[in-house]
């Protein structure tokens, strides 16, 4: 089965809103799926990769463009 890609738009939401929205998306996703979360919250941009590392998923990229962070993660388990 093809891995799916999904975008979660959490712009305008404050910590820990973007992380929680990502986690809700991860729960619904299948292993191998990619999720990209968009966040305007600077704290979340630092905290989301920490969470990914701690829980053991795969951080694919984290970039900032015009004040919006794009963090992409692959569900590993």
């Amino acid at each position: 089965m093809m891995a799916k890609k999904k975008q979660i738009d959490a712009r305008g939401s404050f910590c820990p809103g973007p992380l929680m929205e990502l986690i809700a998306g991860m729960k619904a996703a299948d292993v191998g799926d990619e999720l990209e979360v968009l966040s305007t919250d600077k704290g979340s941009a630092a905290d989301i990769p920490e969470w990914i590392k701690k829980v053991g998923h795969e951080l694919l990229s984290a970039t900032e463009e015009n004040g919006v962070w794009h963090i992409t993660v692959r569900k590993a388990k």
Partner: peptide
Amino acid sequence: RKKAPSFRTLFEQAAELG
């Protein structure tokens, strides 16, 4: 004013997601 997540939502997420 900035519409941070409601604390009750946070506790609900703690229970349901975590």
